[in-house]
Amino acid sequence: MKSVVLMVAAVVALLGASGCRSVAIYEKVRLQDPQMKFEESGTESHFYQKVYYSREGSVGAFGSSAGGGCGCY
């Protein structure tokens, strides 16, 4: 398990560290592609957060309230 965790962390570090630099506005066209946007469907986020918080002991992350108002089942 520890080796898998370290390997994943190394992959993340490589992805992030590959060419970290200042980016001009005209260079960010690719980041505006719909498949690159982090803000996905609001109704999807709402539903999946409820599922995870209802069926898992942990809550919190990516815009959730992390407590209260959930109506978890």
């Binding site: 992805l15 992030g16 590959s18 060419g19 970290c20 630099r21 980016v23 260079e27 960010k28 690719r30 980041l31 690159m36 982090f38 809550v59 919190g60 992350a61 815009g63 959730s64 309230s65 992390a66 407590g67 209260g68 108002g69």
Partner: peptide, 28 residues
Amino acid sequence: ISLTGQINLYQVINPVTHMEYGGVLTLQ
């Protein structure tokens, strides 16, 4: 009663890579 504080950070790494990350703390 639930109180939550959250910080979200966004960073463009290069023209084809970006990331978001953060932390959240809740008191109930």
